[in-house]
Design a protein around this nucleic acid. Structure first.
Length: 569
DNA sequence: TGAAGTTTAA
């Protein structure tokens, strides 16, 4: 029913059964294995004392994060703040238990339903929401749990839970299952809303199924969702954001007779043209907007300015700024952020800082994004001290730093090889109860891969999991490619396999790179596995499932994959 | 996430 394959990455393969986990068999090789907490994050990190060659030592003895991760301090390893009550403790225990089961490799959502049936987890809306969030990058786990929960007595999924599930299935292009769920929501009655259809349209368009997205809009009244201006604007925005402004225009022309456009409809289209750098069309849409009695607003002009900034045509951008002032439509903090940021990115640091002064002179209140952009510019110019002092300035002016503030500082520190400062920032985030996201970790992970700091890499992945953050497609790609480029092809393989197991389809270049490096390192059996993994990835793309299925091609490849390495599934 | 702006990144 369940099985799990590991890539064997060295010669000869050393088969080491996984200690203490009944559900996931795991095999590894000398030197490196994906740590236990990679699969089962709630377990302690116990693998820091591996004998990796690792030049980097975490710098500060008193670093609370490090101490905790080693599990060696007097402070107990706490995965979360003290449970507030008995109920809370029970909830957390249930969550851990469900996570433990779902972290194993399962053949299908149905297999998860069977496994979950033996587990005394109490279902609630909150539990479902939390599990779906935690497993939002593993649709089989998420959907298996969702189905199991929905079958529990006395529990019915909320509209929000359905919407989250719809979104996850859409993200992994499981459109048949997604529509099945919509039908179910409709049959229960009244659960399909514009929020649901928004997710459907965005996921379809995101998968380049623009026509399907338009069809979804057209048939949404069948589910009781009104095709009004708001709904039309969602469709237009979706098509524009997903690289099809021309289809947006087409849909707009078709719908405008029955659905009255508003200012947003036009601004969405103008922004779409600007994003596509089709400035004539953008200006035409602005004219049309005026014909409909809507005056171009600060949003409209800002879209234009952004497009010219992207083209590095600062001359025109400045001209529009002046035009705005003369038309009585002054730029706001967003407009200035765009201009300042583009200047900074283009290396015109002083000009960018002049904008900062202008904003202060104009009495336009900077917000967090504006400050974050300033931090980015200073960091990029190597002025890390100044960048750090902006944070103090923010706090003193009542604009608290955000995740992006810290992420930007971490990224700047990493870019300037200040790993210690970057890691300290991670601690500071914790102190300030600022929840990291995936972007917090990417620069750090990249730096570790570049420097071959395998232990720190593990530490970070452990840290991520404690925060309920799982690698996404680009993080996996980053790990695989950077480890590979920096003399760690074997380790890179493990992440590549993990990636495929999670249902991501790596790019061909990623496979090619890994194969080439394995070849050079004479890791023949690993290369063979990667080639089989390529087939598996192709099967995933074809069947949409990374997991075994009764008749699908993926299943066969797994068998080959297992047999080829000489261990039992 | 979603009518405009900030952090990663090939």
């Amino acid at each position: 029913m369940q099985r799990c394959c590991r890539v064997i990455v060295s010669q000869p393969p050393v088969l080491r059964p996984h200690k203490g986990n009944r559900t996931a068999s795991r095999f590894c090789t000398a030197g490196f294995e994906l740590p236990e907490w990679f699969r089962n994050p709630k377990k302690d990190c116990d693998s820091f004392d591996d004998d990796d060659h690792d030049e980097f030592v975490l710098p500060i003895k008193s670093d609370p994060v490090e101490e905790r991760s080693r599990g060696g301090s007097s402070e107990p390893l706490s995965l979360r703040p003290e449970a507030a009550s008995h109920d809370e403790a029970e909830f957390e225990a249930d969550f851990d238990e469900a996570s433990r089961i779902l972290t194993s490799c399962f053949a299908s959502p149905e297999a998860i339903v069977i496994a979950m049936d033996c587990c005394p987890v109490r279902v609630s809306d909150r539990m479902v929401e939390k599990i779906l969030k935690r497993f939002s990058s593993d649709w089989v786990a998420a959907f298996g749990f969702f189905m199991w929960a929905g079958a529990q007595e006395g529990y019915c999924h909320s509209a929000d839970s359905y919407n989250s599930m719809v979104d996850i299935l859409g993200k992994f292009k499981q459109f048949d299952l997604m529509w099945g769920l919509i039908t179910q929501m409709d049959e229960i009655g009244g659960l399909v809303s514009l929020a649901t259809m928004t997710k459907v349209m965005r996921r379809l368009a995101g998968a380049s199924r623009w026509t399907d997205a338009i069809d979804a809009f057209n048939k949404m009244d069948r589910f009781g969702v009104v095709k009004d201006t708001t709904a039309m604007n969602v469709l237009l925005d979706t098509l524009c954001k997903e690289r099809s402004v021309k289809r947006a225009r087409g849909a707009f022309q078709e719908l405008r007779g029955s659905v009255p456009p508003d200012e947003s409809s036009f601004n969405t289209l103008v922004h779409g043209w600007c994003k596509a750098r089709m400035m004539n069309e953008a200006r035409d849409t602005m004219k049309e907007m005026e014909e409909h009695g809507f005056k171009p607003s600060v949003i409209t002009y800002t879209s234009l300015i952004e497009a010219y900034c992207m083209e590095k045509d600062f001359q025109t951008a400045y001209a529009i700024l002046n035009e705005m002032c003369s038309k009585g439509c002054p730029p706001n903090v967003i407009t200035y952020t765009i201009v300042m940021h583009a200047l900074g990115k283009d290396g015109r640091t002083q000009e960018a800082l002049d904008i900062f002064d202008k904003v202060r002179r104009d009495g336009c209140a900077p917000d967090a994004s504006f400050y974050n952009s300033l931090i980015y510019i200073l960091g990029r110019a190597g002025r890390l001290e100044d960048a750090n002092s902006v944070v103090d300035k923010m706090s003193s002016t009542g604009v608290p730093p955000t995740v992006a503030t810290f992420n930007t500082l971490i990224s700047a520190a990493c870019d300037h090889s200040q790993a210690e400062n970057a890691l300290k920032m991670l601690v500071r985030m914790e102190e300030q109860s600022c929840k990291p996201d995936i972007k917090t970790y990417t620069p750090l992970l990249k730096l570790c891969c570049k420097r071959q700091w395998i232990k720190v890499l593990r530490f970070l992945i452990c840290h991520m999991f404690r925060k309920d953050i799982t690698p996404d497609f680009s993080t996996y790609t980053l790990l695989v490619t950077w480890l590979c480029r920096n003399g760690k092809p074997a380790q890179s393989c493990l992440f590549l396999e993990e990636m495929v197991l999670k249902g991501f389809t790596p790019k061909k270049e990623t496979f090619d790179l890994v194969t080439e490096k394995l070849d050079k390192a004479n890791l023949h059996s690993a290369k063979k596995k990667i080639q089989l993994l390529t087939l598996r990835a192709a099967a995933v793309k074809h069947t949409g499932s990374p997991h075994l299925n009764k008749d699908g091609a993926a299943g066969q490849h797994i068998d080959i994959l297992s047999n080829a390495c000489g261990y039992e599934p």
